[in-house]
Amino acid sequence: MRQRMGLVVGALVLLGSLIAEVFYSHPEHAEYWWQTMPGFFAVFGFIGCLVLILGAKILGSRWLQRHDRYYEGGE
């Protein structure tokens, strides 16, 4: 129930931000194409988040992560 509430609120805020972006933004201040594209940062954030999580997970499990007592002589 709580999760669904969170989802609904999140979706509404996202929708509101997209509307605000379309109607109230000032594209004349923009320096690059992505600053004028509606919803760019939502897509960027979502993909970036997935890339970071999966990238870190792969890096960790394949290479970096060791048991907690690695330096005390455990493996």
Partner: peptide, 28 residues
């Protein structure tokens, strides 16, 4: 707008992958 979108999208990504994230007793 860009900050709110960025943060919301991150939260969505986290929520989606939460079952896979977990924590392990490791050091890096």
């Amino acid at each position: 707008v860009s900050s709110v979108q960025l943060l919301l999208a991150t939260a969505a990504g986290f929520w989606l992958l939460l079952p896979k994230i977990g924590v392990k007793n490791t050091i890096s």
